[in-house]
Design a protein around this nucleic acid. Structure first.
Lengths: 341, 341
DNA sequence: TTGTAAGCGTTATCAA
DNA sequence: TTGATAACGCTTACAA
């Protein structure tokens, strides 16, 4: 198990009896090298087990073939799922990816993104940058050259004008949810979840207008984005004078806590409560959970992101600063099915 | 938003009126530079917004300060959880990390690790490598210099002798599970899960010997490591002539499918079945799931890995090729609590 | 088509 | 303590 030094183009050149540049040419261009030499080089490379050092290449050329993926939170299954889909989509288009999880620290109660994380990412000069999740501070991305596309997935992208943002149409999603509940006869419907952050604000806003267009009054119990917070908030909401018969949650995580609160409520003789989540994570599909939720079309988001990041510069230049809204899909499960008001 | 070219060591040198080497010295060593020049350099760097390009540094020095994390499967919450814990532990010790998910493809029914993924990782010459999960093919890691520690977390590490392996004591875990079920009066206990792969073999083996030491007969229904496979296998196991009253699953994912099969079985008038998972992922803790499971001490694994990867070479040299077994902890939940034979 | 040589941003060696 | 100068593994004019 000796420390086998990886062979370099120099070694290959020596082995094949050609110059370094020829070896480089073989790897970077389809033509311009005679068949004979090309074969000699390839044979030598194979013999030595040579593979080009991609980072040295990117240092030298000032460009790379890599896409950097910045996952904001590794614990959110929505994010890791999109990250994995994107990775696959990019791989199938011939692009390597490397990931970093955002190192976010709290300072004075305000979330701060560790600059070094992003810096290290940018040092690699990725060909494109994919951000998955709600990045609290986008300043460090300002030094990204204009020639490098930035795509933000599943989130709204204020604070970084040039980024392209791919996300579900939150308004439409909320409309679908409210329509569904309304068709089941629900009139007292409450939102449970945060109101802080761009995504949360959009979802709550969508809820409010969807309710308004149905002529219904929108109530809400705000809380953090954790299971526990959902439990607490729902417990309060259910004791509210409004007597909601349906609860719309910010996401699946919150909904899990709410689901528990509903169980307690019903064990104590409470009436049935319809419940919806958001994101359609695989947890919502578990038969014991069976949570009605909104599919964000994770696969579509990932593929579109891959296309934009690796495609024609003209194309993404045209899309820069815009939001691509995907049509959401309501997945109806037991948490609302036949749960009438 | 112009394409701001990042300043280099050269720009700083010019600004401060010193040589490149001096700037480099300032950033790489605590001393050896006069206070005056040091301050001049730092001031210039601040003015220009300079940060060292870490990858150029690693190319030049042949060494970096980065730990590479290779996550085998982004969908397994156990892995992402450990990855995130490790990332934090490493960050607090001053080390950057970058992650890659293994691109695993099936060829002729055999799992193949895409070499390019690992290769790209090694090109960076990480200071250490952390592998999380069961890597099917460890050959590409053979070229890693001996001076770079390799730690494999949550898994057994045959196939790469020099790696240090941190994992739970599977035998002890199975002993705890069998003891627990046995104390509830269960005698007909079946294992549901895969028997292929190093971890699966260890868990199944642990089950068999734990059963033997209790004088019980071990039965098993083998299956893949998915929810669906668990469902199918459990359905078969429950119709077995042996009539098991308890099922021990390979992991939580499989257990989720088994849980559903048990529900169907009981709806059809079947007797109660005790059920255990493995890994204590957060899903098992959900009140609707409430699955008895084995905590692998993810935090401890992550911290120990970080210590080994960044610590004294003597220390990990001594541990090379060994396995660090952590004591498992049985978390008892509703899936077994008071579920007697 | 091929080779030479300079350079990417850094560190390392060796004089000054 | 400082500054040339040569690497690191590669790309890329430019020359041959």
């Amino acid at each position: 198990m000796a420390a086998i030094k990886r062979p370099t183009i120099r070694d290959v050149a020596a082995e094949a009896g050609v110059s370094k540049s020829l070896v480089s040419l073989v790897y970077s261009s389809e033509e311009g090298v005679s068949e004979e030499k090309r074969e000699r080089v390839l044979a030598a490379a194979k013999k030595l087990g040579f593979t080009p050092n991609l980072w040295a290449r990117s240092l030298s050329s000032g460009q790379s073939n890599f896409i950097a993926i910045l996952v904001v939170d590794l614990h959110n299954p929505l994010f890791t799922e999109v990250a994995d889909e994107a990775r696959k989509a990019l791989a199938s288009r011939g692009h390597q990816t490397f990931m970093t999880a955002a190192e976010i620290s709290e300072r004075d109660g305000k979330k701060i993104l560790e600059k070094s994380t992003v810096q290290a990412l940018l040092d690699l000069r990725p060909k494109g940058i994919l951000i998955i999740g709600d990045l609290p501070d986008k300043n460090s991305l300002k030094s990204v050259p204009e020639s490098v596309p930035i795509v933000i997935a599943t989130t709204i992208s204020t604070g970084l004008k040039r980024a392209i943002c791919i996300r579900v149409d939150e308004d439409e999603a909320m409309r679908q949810i409210v329509n569904h509940l309304s068709s089941l006869g629900h009139k007292n419907i409450a939102y449970v979840g945060p109101n802080e952050g761009e995504v949360a604000a959009a979802r709550y806003g969508g809820f409010v207008s969807a309710m308004a267009s149905k002529g219904l009054e929108a109530s809400a119990q705000f809380c953090d984005r954790t299971e526990d917070a959902g439990y607490t908030a729902a417990t309060l909401a259910l004791q509210d004078s409004g007597k909601p018969t349906a609860l719309i949650c910010f996401n699946d995580i919150v909904a899990l806590g709410v689901q528990e609160a509903i169980r307690v409520f019903q064990d104590a003789g409470g009436h049935p409560i319809a419940l919806t989540g958001f994101d359609n994570t695989y947890i919502s599909a578990l038969s014991r959970i069976s949570l009605t939720s909104i599919e964000q079309e994770k696969g579509a988001i990932a593929v579109r992101a891959a296309e934009l990041l690796t495609g024609d510069p003209e194309e993404w230049k045209a899309a820069e600063g815009k939001s691509l809204l995907l049509v959401p899909r309501l997945i109806i499960r037991d948490s609302t099915r036949n749960v009438r008001a």
